[in-house]
Design a protein around this nucleic acid. Structure first.
Lengths: 114, 114
DNA sequence: TGAGTATATAAGCAAATTATTATATATTAA
DNA sequence: TTAATATATAATAATTTGCTTATATACTCA
């Protein structure tokens, strides 16, 4: 097997993580926009612990990385992730979620600085 | 927006189904080879009901179709599935599983006719 | 320093998932 | 017809998942 080929078990575990609409939408949003936890809480209308737990799964898998800015923690795609191109390929097939960011901007709850 | 939400949900449900290494490997095998239940039972070394239940999920989702030939039921990818190209794109990123078919052939347990 | 805010973690629970065992159905062959 | 084979389905049990509530940690600001 070529060393660029993803193992089946690994691929399945990645797809399992993406196989949740909250996490999948998070990843699609992060494709173009860094986001902090409180933005996800508002976008998904979920509790803060629920959002944090989804983010932890993505982070533990290595798909996203975090960066603290003041009190907030911003998440972004980890472009060094070994299987980044596999994920990217999937995300490219998904419908744009930018209107969710636009809604935040209109409500004035989009966080753009620390 | 509602349509987009539905599409993300649909994508997530597809990825969830593929997010199991048995089902994912089944789909990869079916990409190039029709298979019957007893072949999967041997390949995965799982019980027959377990295999049938995985196949039922894939069939209920519309990803695979079945065709009876005598006592056996052969499964194949449903190329008319609405999201076939999405699935195909994922399968193309996965390593070839043909050696599993070759093993069956060497053992003489590959089923090629009714 | 203490209060307030943002986020993470832990514990517990209900729902979903997957495997197993037992049984039913469909087909073939004696 | 009966027996054997292939597969599906049902019932159950074990495991996993994702939510909630409660609490801990980290940072900012007065």
């Amino acid at each position: 097997m070529e060393k660029t080929a993803i193992e089946m078990e690994k691929a399945a575990s990645i797809l399992k993580l993406l196989g949740d609409s909250t996490r999948l939408t998070m990843m699609k949003l992060l494709e173009h926009h860094d986001c902090c936890v409180c933005e996800f809480v508002e976008i998904f209308n979920r509790s803060q612990p629920s959002i944090s737990q989804h983010l932890r799964k993505l982070r533990d898998a290595g798909m996203v990385k975090e960066e603290r800015r003041g009190q907030r923690i911003f998440y972004s795609l980890n472009q060094s992730y070994e299987y980044f191109s596999f994920i990217q390929q999937i995300l490219q097939s998904l419908p744009d979620q930018d209107e969710k960011i636009k809604e935040l901007e209109q409500k004035g709850t989009r966080i753009t600085c620390c």
